[in-house]
Design a protein around this nucleic acid. Structure first.
Length: 400
DNA sequence: GTCAATTCACATGAAAGAGACCACGGTCTAGTG
DNA sequence: CTAGACCGTGGTCTCTTTCATGTGAATTGACGA
């Protein structure tokens, strides 16, 4: 005990003595809102112009922001929102991320979350939805105010719960006497509007703003600016930023990815006691980010899904190419038997395999083999060391 | 050799059930004055 | 008389099951050249 205590003390002491490459790591995380947002001037003015009428108490047009991940939609929106709230006191902005599991991914929970943001409480479950709806309505309409509701990742919400919520929310203005409500939807893909009611769609996208992916040069600018805040001077070797930018530009110009790479490169360098970040560390960072992501996914999967994963890995290890759903199911049943898990039906396994594919842990393509039926062809695009790590996790859970 | 019909092995959808949570209102119980 | 314990009802939410329908090309088998 005292031995390890001693060691820990040493570790902490060394850590404090060591010079850090970071000055302020915060500014490389994605919830950080920089005071100046580069290469989004056009979009920001457009948002601001759309929202400006609220200053005179007019209703703001509903708005839709499109763009792939990491193109600055949320930051831009938050930026304008906070400025607006600063200038005017009867404009209130409610920002909700609809993808947050168990917080706001259903109609009830979204409303509950909104009510919470308005400073009141509502039980997490138990009440009829329309009751919650009325509470929300009454809170909002109790004052003369202009509410702007920002629904981030709105596509996730619609996909899960249908478009009824949006319909209700867009209609709410008709019944309100004092307040006005406008909706800003933020979505990663433009195509999801296809499956919402055309009436809702037209009223919701009175104004549409499209965010294009950043190109490598723009990413470079962004990284440069943030790195000045984030790192101590002189720790970045030439070409590090360019490399992060280039890698992220390959992945549809995702600024978040670029920042993650840079931050992780810094962390790895620091942990190995370096005071200089080289491009070498960027490669390592990329690898580490991938590993972490997959590991996190596997760990957070429910047991059944883990069992399916085990089955796939086992078949993959036995050298089977083009694993089929049926194979997975057969082996899965064996795993269930040996681990005392209650086996699910094939129908369900089919869905679980699909989910694992969606998460990017495996590749499962639906193909038709003619006379020999239609199935998913499953591949495991995972590196050897990662595979070992996953196996270990699954073994700990008695699934291999 | 050609062409439509057949057939396989699941995929994909819809609906409904099970079970965990939870709020609310009513009833019962025990403690208090 | 009242605060708190204890139901029963009704609601949401997630994970599954059940039942039904869909699907795309290899294979088959009839047909004609």
């Amino acid at each position: 005990m005292s031995q390890s205590q001693l060691n820990l003390n040493q570790v902490f002491k060394q850590y404090l003595q060591k010079k850090s490459v970071f000055k302020n790591k915060e500014s490389l995380t994605d919830h950080y809102v920089p005071d100046q947002i580069l290469h989004r001037e056009g979009e920001i003015t457009q948002i601001a112009e759309t929202m400006a009428p609220s200053l005179r108490g007019h209703k703001v047009s509903n708005m839709f922001l499109y763009g792939t991940v990491g193109t600055g939609k949320s930051v831009s929106m938050k930026h304008v929102a906070s400025e607006l709230e600063r200038v005017s006191e009867n404009v209130k902005i409610l920002y909700v991320n609809c993808k947050m599991k168990r917080v706001s991914d259903t109609e009830y929970r979204l409303l509950a979350e909104l009510i919470r943001k308005m400073g009141q409480m509502v039980p997490p479950t138990g009440l009829p939805t329309d009751h919650v709806y009325r509470i929300f309505f009454e809170i909002i309409d109790s004052e003369k105010q202009n509410i702007i509701l920002v629904l981030d990742e709105i596509d996730a919400l619609i996909q899960k719960t249908g478009d009824e919520i949006l319909y209700n929310l867009t209609r709410i203005n008709q019944d309100m006497k004092n307040a006005k409500l406008s909706i800003v939807g933020i979505s990663n893909n433009a195509s999801f509007t296809n499956d919402i009611d055309p009436r809702v769609k037209s009223s919701l996208s009175e104004e549409e703003i499209i965010f294009k992916p950043y190109d490598a040069t723009q990413l470079k600018d962004i990284l440069t600016k943030r790195s000045i805040e984030a790192f101590n001077t002189g720790v970045l070797e030439n070409g590090v930023i360019a490399k992060c930018a280039a890698l992220a530009a390959q992945e549809h110009g995702d600024a978040r990815r670029a920042l993650d790479l840079l931050r992780m490169a810094g962390e790895i360098a620091e942990r190995s006691g370096e005071l200089k970040i080289t491009t070498n560390y960027v490669d390592k960072a990329e690898e580490k980010l991938d590993m972490d992501r997959i590991e996190e996914i596997i760990k957070s999967q429910p047991r059944q899904s883990q069992a399916v994963m085990s089955s796939i890995i086992k078949l993959h290890e036995e050298g089977q190419r083009d694993i089929q759903t049926g194979d997975v199911f057969t082996y899965y049943e064996k795993i269930c038997k040996s681990s005392g898990l209650k086996p699910l039906t094939q129908r369900r396994i089919s869905d679980l395999v699909g989910e694992l594919d969606m998460l990017g842990v495996i590749n499962a393509k639906v193909i038709s083999k003619g006379r020999y039926g239609r199935t998913r062809e499953i591949n495991v695009p995972i590196s050897k060391p990662m595979l070992e790590k996953i196996k270990k996790i699954l073994q700990e859970r008695y699934l291999l």
